[in-house]
Design a protein around this nucleic acid. Structure first.
Length: 945
RNA sequence: GCUCGAAUGGUGGAAUCGGUAGACACGAAGGACUUAAAAUCCUUUGGCCAGUGAUGGCUGUGCGGGUUCAAGUCCCGCUUCGAGUACCA
């Protein structure tokens, strides 16, 4: 029998479906293992060979774990909402719901051909009302919660209300947008609307007036991680800053826990580092400055409290509320002109053109330590969103302050011994302090830092500030709250209606609020959300439903929120829903959640480091606080699969002709490289007939060949249609089979490494499978398998393999385990070994990589059930031991001798072996062996004299 | 600018703890089978030198130093490439 992969793969894929082989249910008798892939956006282009890389890697691990007796959850679904799906729908002019369903069908068809062990009974789609019910539910819970800093967790907002009624804001330590102070009496005196506004300051999901990244071309706001270099990540359109009322999630409340949690999870260091940078913890002090001749005070944040004696000016962010207060009448005109100019610059212009700009406010601040008067400036190098939006400037020791001081001719006072600040600032946090204070500052202040190191001085100053009540120690995070509204159609609707301008949640029992049909789903540049085009979109508070054919009367019928949720909303807790996807009563049943806990192995791209992987951790921590998630961290181990790049091929046309010259001859001509479809090139050799047929203009092309062939050039580029380098997995499966595709994708190199797709080597993997098949069936199709007892040599080959593969799978080193299979099959093949006792474990071990052919052969060997339920083979060290070790040494090409080394050389140490051999000195050509350096099993070096 | 990572034959890559560098695969060259092709199998394959030959010698993991009996691996200083981040006070 020949290795007929088409029949085998079809047969087993059908049987897996019929037998529900990959269906998984909670089984308290078995240990659980949860494997998860980042679910795909079903884009219109379908899958290319790069997409399944991570799925194959995780599928191998899932099958391996299952073989080891674990109850493995390995689900798959689609992230169908959000910008990419909608952009595709806009491009094709079709309704996103229709294109999404089509795209999903296409994805599924492609995925099914590769033979994954997904439990499709658990499939979820983020755009399915059954699913986004729980996205809306989580949002309602976030609206109904605040973050208690003292307890370090989210709490119901009712508790906060009770506290306000008793004690006002006294004794509350909660994450908030703005520090408010009021008494219980003041709270009670507030109107409902006023109280709601106060609560909004604390809610985890809140409506905030914030500066947002507005992308006019996309017609929506974007989160910080969706903006790259001042343009939108998707489409590359300009982004401007705009103040808008938006739903926000108080992610910043969790900054500390998000940072600290990184120490407890098994992610790569680089990914953790990226998240640490994004969270951006910095420890410093807040210091209060009074404004000269005024009652006004303001607070600045600094990490360099030690430099307080070198402050020569203050700077406010242009957006700061203090700007209006501190601008003097004489400076009003200049300041307003400056603010106007700043507003006009987009984020991108600010990045591209880093001019020093600014204007004096006219006011002075008082240094709280020395009593000096310091001018207050306004400049856009200070950001409103970080710290307090105001800084104390120390030009001698901060390069930005330095540039500003040089530009405007402000004083620069060095504070560290030996620091030369004539050309540039000295930013390093090291050295010995001086001039702190200067003699003329001394009278006002009893703090002396001179002679201390910078680190000591920082600590000393912080203490002093605390003692004197001038400020306090503070930890700041760079992480901002997530903006959660999108002016888009294709997203989850908010379960929110508005009464007198204040938002109210619809009752949880009325969920989900389904996305309505609209006349036009295209976004508008003005920012009016497409849901405004819905004919019916209001909430009836009497009947508790979305109303049809009724008008908003603001008495019983109120307008619903017109924005929708962003792409990351649906992807933030999907791993929890996979545990219990058909539950109508809860996101996850409590017992089911307790069983599956969290994801043990998560596989996906590192591009989600500052987006999905932050939001998901936040969302999970929130649900954990409320008891719905059972583990504080959602993804225990994370593997980033590398990107598969394209490998483009080129032909070289001689200028102004239709003649093409082969790669190694092109230097003799003036040529233009032209992309050629990689599918008509094999091992860089062009299929000339296919090329002529490819495009009409090449029908009569002429070729200058080398060795009778046309060799194409190549380059690594992004895989894209325009480069003609897209390779479709369906075509590979058709030509070589899914098992070959799976093995080759893994053989290409380490899973975590980015690499170009190169079809050239695939024959090697296909040949391997044929050889493997050849162990079972002879050339003429005769069955070779016997029940004979295996020899020692055969056992050694097998056990060496099992040991290697088991270790390699654990380390995700799939390429080396495939090499081990190749070696083993070659060995068995030359031993003509077709013994069942050897072949059975081999089949089980290979099954995660090549499941179809292994199912077939497992059945042939008489195995029961599916091969993925067969027990993973164990290895026996006894079989791996060497019988005797003889070391042959040759010297000067003539003399050979054999060292008679101790039998327990395997365990010998270097010292022992050197000694052992010095005691038995031997002579070679009259020279003495001085030393023989031996490590277990190996002679490494011989020193002679 | 800062942070992290990488660099090994013609190509993808291996070397798990500092221990025979180049496993495994592709490609290439030569051979067997075949009317021929495909498929399959066998041999050679980092570079240089010597030898009819078995074989031997030298050299070799981006560059320059160092530690060590021993360095692709550890340390110091560079070069190049990639990723992340960027007025974060």
């Amino acid at each position: 029998m020949e290795y007929n992969f088409r029949e085998i793969e079809k047969k087993w894929q059908q049987r897996w479906v019929a037998n529900q082989t990959y269906r998984v249910t909670e089984d308290p008798e078995k240990k659980k293992f949860y494997v998860l892939n980042m679910f795909p956006y079903p884009s219109g282009a379908g899958l290319h060979v790069g997409h399944p890389l991570g799925y194959i890697a995780s599928d191998i691990y899932a099958r391996y774990k299952r073989s080891q007796g674990y109850n493995v959850l390995n689900p798959m679904g689609y992230d169908a909402y959000g910008l990419p799906a909608e952009q595709y729908a806009i491009q094709t002019g079709q309704h996103p719901a229709i294109t999404t369903v089509q795209n999903i069908a296409r994805y599924r068809e492609q995925l099914d051909k590769i033979g994954f062990s997904f439990d499709w009974n658990r499939e979820i789609r983020t755009c399915d009302p059954e699913y986004y019910h729980w996205t809306q539910w989580a949002f309602i819970r976030m609206f109904g919660s605040y973050y208690d800093n003292a307890q370090g967790k989210a709490m119901p907002i009712e508790g906060l209300v009770a506290h306000f009624e008793q004690n006002g804001s006294e004794g509350i330590d909660a994450a908030c947008s703005e520090n408010l102070e009021f008494t219980a009496a003041e709270w009670k005196a507030m109107s409902e609307k006023e109280q709601q506004e106060v609560l909004m300051n604390y809610r985890i999901a809140y409506l905030g007036e914030t500066m947002v990244n507005w992308c006019p071309k996309l017609g929506t706001v974007l989160a910080n991680d969706e903006v790259v270099d001042g343009v939108s990540e998707r489409g590359g359109y300009p982004v401007v800053q705009k103040k808008m009322r938006q739903w926000c999630l108080r992610v910043s409340a969790y900054a500390g826990r998000l940072l600290e949690g990184l120490d407890r999870i098994d992610w790569t260091d680089s990914l953790k580092e990226t998240q640490r940078n994004w969270i951006g913890r910095s420890e410093g002090a807040e210091l209060t400055f009074k404004v000269k001749d005024s009652d006004v005070e303001f607070v600045i944040f600094t990490t360099r409290a030690d430099t307080v004696f070198g402050v020569t000016f203050m700077v406010l962010a242009p957006e700061s509320e203090l700007v209006a207060t501190l601008t003097t009448p004489e400076q009003k005109e200049a300041v307003e002109a400056y603010l106007d100019a700043t507003k006009k610059r987009t984020e991108r212009e600010r990045i591209a053109d880093r001019r020093v700009t600014g204007v004096w406010s006219g006011s002075y601040a008082i240094n709280p330590l020395t009593g000096e008067s310091i001018p207050v400036w306004i400049s856009d190098y200070v950001l409103a969103g970080y710290g307090t939006g105001a800084i104390m400037a120390v030009p001698a020791h901060d390069s930005r302050d330095y540039a500003f001081a040089k530009h405007f001719g402000l004083e620069i006072r060095p504070l560290i011994e030996g620091a030369d600040v004539s050309e540039e600032s000295f930013d390093a946090k090291e050295g010995i302090m001086m001039n702190s204070p200067r003699p003329e500052q001394k009278g006002e202040c009893d703090l002396v830092l001179n002679g201390l190191t910078v680190k000591e001085a920082i600590a000393r100053t912080k203490e002093y500030i605390k003692e004197k009540g001038l400020g306090h120690v503070k930890v700041n995070y760079r992480l901002r709250d997530a903006i959660f509204s999108r002016q888009r159609y294709w997203g989850e609707p908010f379960p929110v209606y508005y009464k007198e301008g204040m938002p109210y949640m619809v009752p949880e029992s009325c969920l989900p609020i389904e996305l309505p049909e609209v006349a036009k789903f295209l976004p508008t540049e003005s920012g009016e959300p497409p849901l405004g085009h819905a004919t019916v979109w209001a909430w009836d508070t009497v009947n508790n439903c979305v109303v049809e054919n009724a008008k908003v009367d603001n008495v019983t019928i109120f307008p619903l929120e017109l924005n929708t949720m962003p792409g990351f909303a649906g992807s933030s807790a999907y791993y929890l829903r996979y545990m219990d996807p058909h539950n109508h009563e809860a996101l996850v049943d409590d017992k089911v959640g307790e069983y599956w806990q969290n994801v043990d192995l998560y596989v996906g791209g590192s591009e989600h480091a500052t987006g999905h992987l932050i939001y998901s951790r936040f969302w999970n921590k929130f649900l954990y606080d409320l008891g719905y998630s059972k583990n504080d961290e959602p993804f225990q181990k994370l593997i980033n699969q590398g990107m598969i790049q394209g490998r483009s091929n080129f032909v070289y046309r001689i200028k102004d002709t239709n003649t093409f010259v082969s790669l190694n001859l092109k230097k003799n001509y003036d040529v233009t490289p032209i992309h050629v479809d990689v599918n008509i090139v094999s091992n860089d050799v062009l299929d000339i007939e296919a090329f002529k047929a490819w495009r009409p203009e090449y029908n009569d092309a002429e070729f200058i060949l080398e060795d009778g062939k046309y060799i194409c050039g190549w380059a690594v580029e992004k895989m894209s249609k325009s480069m003609f380098n897209v390779v479709n997995p369906d075509m590979i499966v058709e030509k070589y089979g899914a098992d070959t595709l799976r093995m080759y994708e893994m053989f290409l190199g380490p899973v975590e490494q980015s690499k170009p797709w190169d079809t050239n080597g695939i024959d090697g993997c296909h040949r391997f499978l044929k050889k493997f098949w050849g162990l079972f069936y002879g050339r003429n199709g005769e069955l070779l398998v016997t029940d004979e007892a295996p020899t020692k040599e055969e056992l050694k080959s097998l056990h060496k393999l099992i040991k290697k593969v088991t270790g390699d799978i654990e380390a995700f080193s799939y390429n080396t385990s495939i090499s081990a299979f190749m070696i083993c099959v070659n060995e068995l093949s030359s031993l003509k070994c077709a013994k069942k006792e050897i072949l059975m474990p081999l089949v089980v071990a290979l099954a995660p990589f090549a499941p179809h052919v292994c199912e077939e052969l497992h059945e042939l060997l008489g195995g029961e059930g599916s091969v993925c339920d067969a027990q993973w083979p164990a290895w026996n060290e006894e079989y791996l031991k060497e019988d005797s070790v003889t070391y042959s040494i040759s010297f000067n090409g003539k003399t050979r001798f054999t060292l008679d080394l101790a039998a327990d050389m395997d365990n010998a140490t270097i010292e022992q072996t050197v000694l052992a051999n010095e005691n038995t000195q031997k002579y070679i050509d009259g020279k003495t062996i001085r030393k023989v350096i031996v490590v277990p099993k190996k002679i490494v070096n011989i020193v002679i004299s």
